[in-house]
Amino acid sequence: MTTVSLRRSIGDLTFDHVLVSPQDPGGDGHDAPTVLVFHGMEGRSDAQLAIAQRLTQWGHRAIAVDLFGETVSAGGSQRCADEMTAFLADRGRLAGRLSAVLTALTDAPEVDRDAMAAIGFCFGGLCVLDLARAGHPLRAVVSFHGLLTAPDRPGDGAIPARIAVHHGWDDPFAPPEDVVALGRELTARGADWQLHAYGGAMHAFMAPFADQPERGIQYHPVVADRAWRALGDFLGEVFAPRS
């Protein structure tokens, strides 16, 4: 695989996205689908980059998206946590950031804007759902142990992206009432959606470093493997050649 920086500026902020591409001995690879990988509270991280690298095994390009910007990331974990909290308190501002970042990335010549999906973890799971709610041109979005609540103005038109949600049933940050509300919301907007709820799984079940069960945060290797295999099947369906 190859890894290159896709550094982009939005206003006076700089964002260091990282593009990971599979080896392509038969051509230039520009026809490969692109999967955007959205980070959680920690900002753009090595764990997120590892997910992007795994996606290349399925023949996809992947971009580890920097949603907070280099200045925030350089400020450490507390600065990143504060940035996430500010975005959660102002979903309109978050929508603006998501739209600006997506526009900057789709302008990259390496990206096929007609074959794009987005996946996200924790806060990133919320972000990809908000991208779908806003009607951005994505084939699909996949949320892993994401926050599920709708923004104040989620929209009311049809949602074009296919949606898959992977949820730990014992996740205290997304209680059952949020799950039911999401299902009703997506159904009302005519979305093609699916939900995978995993018994015995807490928040951050995909993250090997998660180990705070007293807070409802814990890695679950069996569930993580199930969710990853389900992602592969879903992306294979989404990016299947159109007849």
Rank of each mutant, 00 (worst) to 15 (best):
D107S: 13
A115L: 12
A210E: 06
E185D: 15
G199V: 01
G155A: 11
G96Q: 06
G135A: 13
D211G: 11
H196K: 06
V142I: 10
F239C: 07
L147S: 10
Q23H: 05
L231S: 03
P109N: 01
V238I: 13
R189D: 12
Q78N: 10
R113M: 07
P208C: 06
A224M: 10
V65F: 08
V142H: 04
M206V: 01
D171Q: 03
T85P: 01
D46T: 14
S45T: 10
L94F: 03
D82M: 13
M206W: 02
I163W: 05
L138H: 08
D192A: 12
G200D: 08
R44G: 03
A47Y: 14
G124C: 04
A86N: 15
D31N: 07
L195A: 08
L36D: 08
S77D: 14
P175A: 02
H203N: 09
D90Y: 04
H166T: 01
G236H: 11
G155K: 06
R79D: 12
A140T: 02
F68M: 11
L148D: 04
I10S: 04
M202L: 12
A134R: 06
T3F: 00
H203C: 12
D171R: 03
H167T: 01
F38E: 10
T14L: 07
S77L: 15
L148I: 00
L36F: 15
A174L: 03
R91P: 12
L231K: 06
I163K: 09
I217Q: 01
S21F: 00
Q218N: 13
A210R: 03
P137N: 12
A158R: 15
P160H: 10
C127M: 07
I163T: 07
L138Q: 06
G59F: 04
F123P: 10
G155S: 11
D31I: 00
T149Y: 05
M202P: 01
T14E: 14
D171C: 04
E185W: 11
E177H: 08
V222E: 15
G11W: 13
G75T: 13
W228K: 07
P213Q: 05
T106K: 13
G183N: 10
D130G: 00
S5C: 12
A240T: 06
M116F: 09
